[in-house]
């Protein structure tokens, strides 16, 4: 009964007594980029983190409502969160490569999920680095520390790492806000490449980035979705005045 892809139904998230997400329902289509925008504290990052149960790691957080992924409610207590996070990966604001080699950063996930064959791992590493447009820059130094890479390269490595375990959805929390314009452009280009295969949900404070990279945009305010529509519509003729004011930089 539930469609392909990811879908939140009446999701509520509480930090102690405080309700941070107040009943949000959103459907994310496969092979589309959805941007979550809104002023600080509007709940967009909390919502993003709830999509692969990252909020479980925070004390005092309680979640109600459903999140459906391929016919399974990921909020069911029986769900294996490790498997869940393999299906729904995450890229953070600050690049956070492991203190290991470039190769090991990518190979870590597949190995954890049971890939032992060296040739197979080599192929995965190359494939992921190519998809992240990082292969040419790193093929001669795969066994050097990932920390020697530039910030932009590290972030693309983290994206490569997230796709190594063959996810269906990639969540990105301001993936380019710590990067310079050229690295930002590369990450944005990568996002449009990756959407051929994955659904991407991206939180961004940069309105123009949202306009550039996403197919759909959801505007969050005070824990609710004010407007959710095709990005072109949101940025040329939003239905809600609050959306217009926010994206015009007049309120936030």
């Amino acid at each position: 009964m539930h469609q392909e892809g990811l879908s939140a139904k009446n999701l509520r998230v509480f930090y102690g007594e405080k309700e941070a997400i107040k009943g949000v329902s959103l459907d994310f289509a496969p092979r589309e980029v959805t941007a979550l925008i809104g002023p600080s504290g509007c709940g967009k990052s909390t919502f993003l983190r709830s999509l692969n149960r990252m909020n479980d790691t925070i004390d005092g957080v309680r979640t109600t409502g459903e999140i459906w992924m391929d016919g399974e409610n990921i909020n069911d207590p029986g769900v294996d969160v490790v498997l869940l996070r393999q299906k729904i990966g995450m890229v953070w604001q600050r690049p956070n490569p492991f203190h290991k080699s470039i190769y090991e950063n990518i190979a870590f996930g597949p190995r954890y999920h049971g890939v032992r064959n060296k040739k197979e791992l080599d192929a995965i590493v190359e494939d992921c680095l190519r998809k992240a447009a990082l292969w040419d820059e790193t093929k001669d130094r795969l066994h050097q520390s990932a920390l020697a890479l530039s910030g932009g390269q590290q972030q693309r490595l983290c994206i490569a790492r997230s796709i190594a375990v063959k996810p269906k959805v990639i969540l990105m929390d301001e993936p380019a806000s710590a990067l310079d314009p050229v690295s930002t452009a590369k990450v944005e280009e990568l996002i449009s490449e990756l959407k051929q295969e994955y659904s991407i949900v991206i939180v961004t404070h940069n309105m123009h980035q949202a306009a550039r990279v996403s197919d759909k945009t959801a505007f969050f305010y005070m824990g609710k979705v004010v407007e959710y529509d095709v990005t072109d519509k949101i940025f040329t003729n939003p239905s809600e005045k609050a959306t217009d004011d926010y994206i015009s930089g007049r309120f936030g």
Binding site: M207, A211, F235, T236, D244, S248
Partner: peptide
């Protein structure tokens, strides 16, 4: 100024 929405219109 990168205007959008009504500003752009």
């Amino acid at each position: 100024q990168q205007p959008v929405a009504k500003d752009l219109r």
